[in-house]
Design a protein around this nucleic acid. Structure first.
Length: 159
DNA sequence: ATATTGATTGTTCCG
DNA sequence: CGGAACAATCAATAT
């Protein structure tokens, strides 16, 4: 780990491409399932269904960008290349262009909160310790869950 | 053989 | 309020 580069012991990894004044960054954590199903289980399996963080607008944009990028650069094998290129392009986009991505991201976030809600309940369900200020009221369902504003942008591709 | 890193930015949560 | 951690990705690398 860590190719002996770290200064002393801090700084997570993912170092320094451009430290503007941002905060810094760190690295990811654990990857467990991969490679299809052969590996069965690595060992990092913890919670059954933990909702991962919703992709930001940038990620949503990247998903599409990656395809395009690789399509024109099938030789590129570095993920960092797409990341960098995507970052540059991202900044090149106008607010209007980012709008659809942000909208999508917003939706993801809403779903995430919902998942978290369910996830939390599940957790508290098993934990029966004493306190925990969770209102498990389970009243009736929330009302109005079907209102979908935001036009469904299902497919807008006109090729 | 599998976990990890590398790079981007945004989002989200904890102190 | 601020910052640290983590989200996808995929190939290469380290353990």
């Amino acid at each position: 780990m860590k190719t002996a580069k770290g200064k002393g012991a801090a700084k997570r990894e993912t170092l320094k491409p451009v430290d503007d004044g941002k905060v810094g960054k760190r690295k990811a954590a654990g990857k467990a399932d991969k490679s299809g199903s052969k590996a069965k289980k690595g060992k990092l399996a913890k919670d059954p269904n933990k909702p991962k963080r919703p992709p930001s607008a940038f990620f949503v944009f990247l998903e599409e960008f990656r395809k395009t990028f690789k399509k024109e650069n099938p030789n590129v094998k570095a993920v960092s290349a797409v990341g960098k290129a995507g970052g540059e392009k991202w900044k090149s986009l106008s607010a209007a262009e980012k709008a659809p991505y942000e909208a999508k991201a917003a939706k993801r976030k809403a779903e995430y909160q919902k998942l978290i809600n369910a996830y939390n309940k599940k957790q508290e369900s098993t934990a029966d310790d004493g306190d925990e200020e969770s209102e498990i009221h389970d009243d009736d369902d929330e009302s109005g869950q079907g209102d979908d504003e935001e036009e469904d942008d299902d497919d807008e591709d006109d090729d």
